[in-house]
Nucleic acid binder design. Structure first.
Lengths: 110, 110
DNA sequence: CGCGTATATACTTATCGGTTCATATGCTCG
DNA sequence: CGAGCATATGAACCGATAAGTATATACGCG
């Protein structure tokens, strides 16, 4: 329903994503690091999971969560039309790189 | 009050920013293009202005609004720690460019 | 002047999402 | 099997806010 933007509007969710940026973590780890109630962590993780921001696996009694990049890429893409405001003089180079493929081989495209 | 993220969580506001990305516009123009009530446009513009996303000048009876990049840069910056997820193999090149100053040729005419 | 257009603002209402508390489920180990 | 930890889920509560309505202000022109 809501866009990815609504999801990352919540500071605690951004904090969680920030933690997961460096490596995957269990719920308990997140709880301790961010000093936020477990129930809250769980609920935010649920929202993040349903929105495709994270994925989880069960490891005995724990659940380990990690980042899925797609929704964040979407946000990144939305910023594109604005980037020239702060990178004006490099635009030409950027476009050049894009045209060159920017991610040459490596199959597995959509 | 809330972070820039909360501001762009609103779809109408993103639409307005999207319009302004290409060029400055008056309130009436935005109203017509987006087919949204004037009062709504005004209110969103107010929010955007107070959050530093746009700036306006008075031109006779009209107000012309345009983008201020700072808050969007902030969002762009927040994405940095995640970018390696979708640009992993280009990272080296990116860092290289950054180290070089990102604006190699000095022949730029001004 | 006085009307029409352009824009902003106050007020109200309904909705939404986050937090808290209580409880449920499931796994591990003794 | 039963205790205890890790995590999830549900319900009530509460504050924020978007949208609608109505009105106010400013300008420009005949």
């Amino acid at each position: 329903m809501d866009s990815s933007f609504a999801i990352i509007a919540e500071p605690n969710r951004r904090a969680i994503l920030g933690l997961l940026a460096s490596s995957e973590r269990s719920v308990g780890e997140i709880e301790r690091r961010l000093r936020m109630p477990q129930t809250s962590v769980s609920k935010h993780l649920r929202v993040l999971r349903e929105a495709g921001f994270v994925e989880s696996r069960v490891e005995a009694q724990r659940r380990v969560y990690w980042i899925r990049p797609e929704p964040l890429m979407e946000v990144d893409a939305w910023l594109a039309p604005f980037r020239h405001f702060w990178t004006a003089h490099v635009d030409a180079l950027e476009r050049h790189l894009d045209r060159m493929g920017r991610a040459p081989r490596k199959g597995k495209n959509r």
